[in-house]
């Protein structure tokens, strides 16, 4: 499933980071890599962006950006 489809409180393991160019590289450099575990902390009040916990820190992504990331749902 896509990261943007996950619900608050769900965890997943990243399978693939799609997209292209700057955005993709930036996402990877922030530590959202293949096999990394992500936890969906919350959605912003207007349902966009998403707040994630990755490698022990909090990061936010726009929903459209999160849609480039494929994950395996863990729980």
């Amino acid at each position: 499933m896509l990261l943007s489809e996950m619900k608050e409180g769900q965890s997943g393991r990243i399978v693939r980071v799609g997209g292209s160019g700057v955005l993709r590289r930036r996402i990877l450099e922030m530590g959202l890599l293949k096999d990394t575990e992500v936890y969906v902390e919350k959605y912003a009040p207007l349902k966009d962006p998403i707040e994630l916990i990755v490698k022990g820190y909090h990061v936010s992504l726009r929903v459209e950006e999160a849609a480039h990331i494929t994950v395996d749902s863990l729980r």
Partner: peptide
């Protein structure tokens, strides 16, 4: 060009 990607840290 698109606005900067919103890959933003939410620091403690």
């Amino acid at each position: 060009g698109a606005d900067a990607p919103f890959v933003m840290e939410l620091p403690p």
